[in-house]
């Protein structure tokens, strides 16, 4: 067989092997394996990650021959902004309250759009504030601080 590397499979294989490796190491460090009759807390992780490592090797090896399948471009900017928006929501909701964190989350996420239209973004923030207020605070009564001074 000719060597025709498949980037997707190779990456996936390495990822599974690395994940399994780290988990197996942690497992042997801290969890007793036990016996088949009286399995310790490390028995099932050992089996699972052992199998996963083997599968990772299989994917890696077969990936050397089944290519080429390139990994597409990674949309770092879009991904970063969306994940940042969520993270900011999580960081601020308890300290600054739901109104501020909602506005921040939508504001950051909206930057991912190619053309940033302030009017649309602010309109959306106002609309979502009203909708989420009615839905979550007034109607469902979820326990969440509303304003920075609510707690």
């Amino acid at each position: 067989m000719r060597l025709r590397p498949d980037a997707q499979d190779i990456f996936a294989g390495v990822m599974f092997i690395a994940f399994a490796g780290v988990m197996l190491y942690l497992n042997f460090e801290s969890h007793p394996i036990g016996t088949a009759r009286r399995m310790g807390s490390g028995y099932m992780p050992m089996l699972t990650f052992g199998i996963l490592a083997a599968l990772g090797v299989a994917i890696l090896v077969s990936g050397l021959f089944t290519g080429p399948e390139p990994i597409g471009r990674f949309a770092w900017r879009d991904m970063g902004l969306i994940l940042l928006a969520l993270t900011v929501y999580g960081l601020t909701v308890e300290r600054l309250g739901f109104v501020v964190s909602l506005a921040l989350c939508i504001g950051i996420a909206s930057v991912a759009e190619k053309v940033w239209k302030p009017l649309r973004v602010f309109g959306l923030i106002a609309f979502m504030l009203a909708l989420c207020w009615v839905l979550f605070i007034w109607y469902l009564d979820i326990r969440i601080p509303v304003f920075p001074w609510s707690r």
């Binding site: 007034w138 109607y139 601080p145 304003f147 001074w149 609510s150």
Partner: peptide, 18 residues
């Protein structure tokens, strides 16, 4: 009734600094 409690709570939350 449930809503009224909620409103009371919100009202109270708004008035908290005072």
């Amino acid at each position: 009734l449930a809503r009224r409690t909620v409103l009371t709570v919100l009202g109270a939350a708004l008035a908290a600094p005072a």
